[in-house]
Structures are given as C-alpha cells and as structure tokens.
C-alpha cells in the first residue's frame, strides 16, 4: 500500500466496529450501528496522522478501538508489530502506557478532587516500579515545565485553571508514562482562538523534542492540515480520501472533501468574498440508517447509479493519495 521503508509504529488493518442495538426483554441485538467499516492506516514514528470528519463519522471510535476502550468487531491493530487486540489484560497493560489519549474536554477528564501535581504523579507512579518521593516530584515538575505550566501551580485544582491550562495539564499527564503514541481527540476545539494557537504550537514542539507520534482527531481541517503529515477524511465510518496534508487541501478529489474544504471559513477577505462555496444538501445520516453503497451518495452532487449499489474501492490517484470514489478516473482525465 504505502512505501515500506520503515516499520510503522502503528498499523491498523481492516478495523471494524459494529455496535449492537439491543432490544427486548431477552436482550438481543436487533440491528448494528456500523461506526467503523474496514479502516486501514499506518502511523510512522515521529509522524502525525490527522483524522478528519464530522460528528458521527467514527473518528473517535477508531481512537477508542486502538486503546481497547471498545473491543473492535474485527481487524488488527499492530503496535510495534504486535496485535494489541489479541493481547491478554496483563500484556495490554504494559502496552497501554505507550499509547495515551488526550481528550476534548480537559475539565471532564481531570479528577476535580486532585491537584495538578497529584494528577500527573498518579500517572507516573502507576507503572508498578518503585519511585521515591523526590524522584517522582522531580519528574512531575519536569513534565510541568515541558508543557509550559509553571511547577509552582502544582497545588491548584482543575476548577482553578483556565481551559488552556487544563489542556496543558492533560498533556502533561499523558506524557507522564513516556508514551510513543498520543491519540488526541479534538484537543483544541474547546479552546479559545488565541489559546488554540499556543496549544497547537506545544503539540508541534513536543513532537520535535520527544519524537512522538500523533493520531490527531479533529473536525477542523485547517488545524489538522497545520499539524498533520498525512490526513484521512472519513464519512459515516468509511475512509473516503487519504493524502499528504498539503496535497489533500490543494487538490481534493472526493466530493465530500471538496465540500468540507469549501465550507471552512477563512479570514482572508478577498479570498472569502470571491470564493464559490459548495453547500451540500441535507445532513449526515444517522449511522443506524446508513445508505447503501457509497455512504455519501444521497448528498453527493455527482452521484450515479453505481454509487447507490456498491461502495467504491480505494484508488490511488498519485503516490500516497487515495480516493474512494467512482468519479476519480473521470476527474483525473480532466486534470
């Protein structure tokens, strides 16, 4: 699929997550919500993969499947070549320290009764080894400094902090067990604009210094383009387009990616006023009533009969740029 220079840090293949909808006195699955359908991707060490889509497209579910918060229906998740999904609890516990998650709402994911210092320390000492009090304190303060939080503020509680400070604390906590992969689920969308930039810069700096890999999940394509090396666009559980970040924003092939890009408001006055906007019809259907064939066809301006019958396969348009759309061949001819 992609060039195999280096063994990827994380390799997800044919991941499926179907949630049963249980009904009746004798619990029985009457239908399935197909949250994630046949998703494959790789993340190399020190790289960032962006996962973009609207609510309900399954982007968060993928993150949770990798962490085994949800047990995936099928597929494999190889981390350093080992399948996480097959591991026993004990094995998994060791691996899990290497994959950490950062949440959208930093307030909801921090214990309100613990101070900043305790929140980070708890994570650091949870590896089962013995740590002296001084050593733990030193490490926690290092982490705090690393994320740009003055260590003196360690005695504060989450409710005494601003949104940006809380998100920094969430990052410090995730870093406490020296992870290799961070799954960032909408980490900046709850923050104010002026603070967002600070946190995005922090993510980039940490990646350079610690050679971290990120799975960066967000709905804001502009933010993702800024931070990710490669971007996956999802729609209703399916990957519809994969490409290098800049390539995807410069030349999107899938009609959904095109619409998504055109819907993003910019601050450049002339460009904004001159721009033709593709406004999609209708809304994202509920995953319980996913349409047949290509899930995007009811809203797609170019939908044909073939689209209703069968989901198109991923096709390579350029090295590293793949699209799942029947129209691609035609589009390429026009280029």
């Amino acid at each position: 699929m992609m060039n195999e220079r280096q063994d990827p840090l994380l390799k997800v293949s044919h991941l499926r997550m179907h949630f049963p909808m249980i009904k009746g006195l004798i619990p029985k699955a009457c239908a399935y919500v197909k949250a994630v359908e046949d998703v494959s991707f790789e993340i190399e060490k020190g790289k960032t993969l962006g996962l973009v889509g609207e609510s309900g497209c399954g982007k968060t579910t993928i993150g949770k499947c990798i962490l085994r918060v949800h047990e995936a229906t099928s597929g494999t998740v190889l981390f350093h070549g080992q399948n996480i999904l097959d591991m026993s609890r004990k094995e998994h516990r060791q691996v899990r320290r290497k994959i950490q998650m950062i949440f959208q709402d930093p307030y909801g994911s921090l214990d309100p009764r613990q101070t900043a210092f305790d929140i980070v320390r708890e994570m650091y000492v949870a590896d089962g080894a013995t740590h002296s009090r001084e050593e733990a304190a030193k490490r926690v303060n290092e982490l705090m400094t690393l994320v740009g939080r003055p260590p003196e503020l360690g005695s504060r509680y989450p409710h005494e902090m601003s949104g940006g400070q809380r998100q920094r604390l969430g990052i410090a906590r995730a870093l406490a067990c020296s992870p290799e992969l961070l799954i960032c689920d909408e980490p900046v969308s709850a923050l104010d604009v002026s603070i967002q930039a600070q946190v995005i810069n922090l993510f980039k700096r940490l990646q350079r210094e610690l050679s971290l890999s990120y799975l960066f999940i967000a709905h804001d394509l502009v933010v993702v383009r800024h931070i990710a090396d490669q971007i996956i666009v999802m729609y209703l559980g399916h990957i519809v387009e994969v490409a290098e970040a800049e390539e995807l924003c410069r030349k999107p092939y899938h009609p959904y990616t095109q619409a998504l890009l055109s819907a993003i408001p910019g601050v450049d006055y002339d460009a904004e006023r001159a721009r033709e906007r593709i406004v999609l019809e209708g809304e994202v259907p509920s995953p319980t009533k996913a349409p047949s064939g290509c899930p995007f066809h009811p809203r797609c301006p170019y939908a044909s009969e073939a689209c209703q019958r069968k989901m198109p396969k991923m096709k390579q348009v350029k090295p590293g740029h793949q699209v799942a759309c029947y129209r691609v061949d035609w589009e390429r001819k026009c280029d």
Partner: peptide
C-alpha cells in the same frame, strides 16, 4: 493565531 489553508505548515502559529 489562526492557521490558514494556504499557510506554511512549518511555520509556527
């Protein structure tokens, strides 16, 4: 402080 679609990705915000 807002990233732009046509901006340089390597430049810090």
């Amino acid at each position: 402080s807002v990233p732009r679609l046509d901006g340089d990705r390597n430049q810090e915000l």
